[in-house]
Nucleic acid binder design. Structure first.
Lengths: 248, 248
DNA sequence: CCAAAAGTGTTAGACCTACACCCATGA
DNA sequence: TCATGGGTGTAGGTCTAACACTTTTGG
């Protein structure tokens, strides 16, 4: 059984090296059978959507989300959604906040708990649901028409990400496990919409002694190959204990 | 009508000059009639609590909160709660997050949206409900036994406050409108649990040019009277535009 | 005149900013 | 050998940390 008035919506962020993107689906996709573990839940959602059509605009996009099963809390359900879409169990996930305006969804009062997730581009989206077509990354600067208050939710998730990325080392989750300093700089420049001085950025990051030099380099690039670094959470924790204040 | 599975809980912080406190009430107080604008709502809550007693421990304390009326969203309802308890319309209020573990409340699944509020000590609590006795400030370092997951909610609200206070000028809301630099320093020392150097703290704060010197001084103090300053939001906004990064 | 808290300046080191050129690689 | 992006050092200014004594007020 699902809770008809409680849903989870995930703002899934991805970074392609130049743009910060959000993964959206077309709303009727909420009904894809494979997504529901429980056949009864699928039936209940189908009924619900028959009564309360999501949007009159068949072309509108929406955040990936669904109603919460009775025996799950929203954290668990967000994890389930993310693992279904990325085949990863340890995606970086944070609750943004609850959205619950009385009329945010027509016909029925639905509280949605929004999450944002950061996806490492190494992992392919939708390994488990390859058949699905209407699933697409959109640049945060050119969003399509979206259902309900999703545009608002995306905006607030983005603000939360911007806040978090400056004071906590979370940006790494948007990069491959091994990344170059240039990739990291581009990431910050894109998310924060600023330009950073390369020399100063490198000094700052390397001085924190937070990154591990993998002693590897890029291969097959048509220019000088860059060093690859890794982020290590244990080192970060140790440094925080010693008084490190991560700040970009 | 109220929504039986959606509530708001407020972590109301106050600062008495030396301690950071949270306002709690004793759980049966949820039933005080004056709190409900709508007689029908009061009846519904009474019924609900008869079926689902809040706690077997009559001495347990809880966050101030209540179920959300059908025609309100949680922001509005949190504002209502705060204005009822402080007779102020513009209390500083932030959503912490939604708590919705399946078993956080016995008998019934209730999602609660937690807020934290910062109360200026100039304003007296409970002007509108002077009769109430079981309402008390507790030092955050010595909380009493509390119902449900409220201890968890308080902890997360506190973490959010600590985070916010370092990077945004919100601490002022816990002080009288006109305050001394020593009061401000004590506030930061208490909230962040650190010691700050007086000379350096003063230089830092005054260099931001964020505070307005009221040209007034304390009166009736048994020592040299301190200057009184005011925080001005418009000045802050202007400085942010010019690139100010508020950081303690 | 005493007790209590307000208020203040300097120095050394760390960190930040601005800025331009050579290096390594594959095509 | 060319195009592309990787990688580096320095100097001047600003911010931070550490530190102790005098001033003002009321009782």
């Amino acid at each position: 059984m699902i809770l008809e008035n409680l849903s989870v919506d995930c703002v899934i962020f991805g970074f392609d090296g130049a743009n910060l993107n959000v993964l959206l689906w077309q709303s009727e996709l909420n009904l894809i059978k494979e997504f529901y573990r429980d056949h009864e839940d699928y039936g209940q959602v189908t009924e619900l959507f028959k009564k309360n059509p999501i949007s009159s605009d068949k072309n509108a996009w929406g955040l990936i989300g669904s109603h919460v099963p009775v025996d799950e809390d929203s954290d668990e359900h967000a994890k389930y959604i993310l693992s279904t879409f990325t085949s990863l169990d340890n995606v970086f996930l944070r609750q943004v906040k609850a959205f619950n305006e009385a009329n945010r969804v027509p016909f029925q009062r639905v509280v949605t708990i929004a999450y944002y997730a950061l996806i490492n581009p190494d992992y392919h989206i939708m390994k488990k649901m390859d058949g699905i077509k209407s699933l697409k990354w959109f640049n945060i600067n050119s969003m399509p028409k979206v259902i309900f208050d999703h545009s608002n939710i995306i905006q607030e998730a983005l603000e939360k990400l911007r806040e978090e990325v400056r004071y906590h080392p979370v940006g790494f989750h948007l990069l491959p496990e091994k990344f170059t300093l240039t990739q990291l700089q581009n990431l910050y420049e894109t998310i924060l919409d600023v330009e950073l001085d390369t020399r100063n950025f490198r000094k700052k990051i390397l001085n924190m002694k937070l990154l591990v030099d993998t002693e590897q380099k890029q291969i097959n690039v048509a220019h000088r190959a860059a060093r690859l670094y890794e982020f290590n959470l244990d080192i970060y924790k140790k440094l925080v204990k010693e008084g490190l204040n991560f700040r970009i």
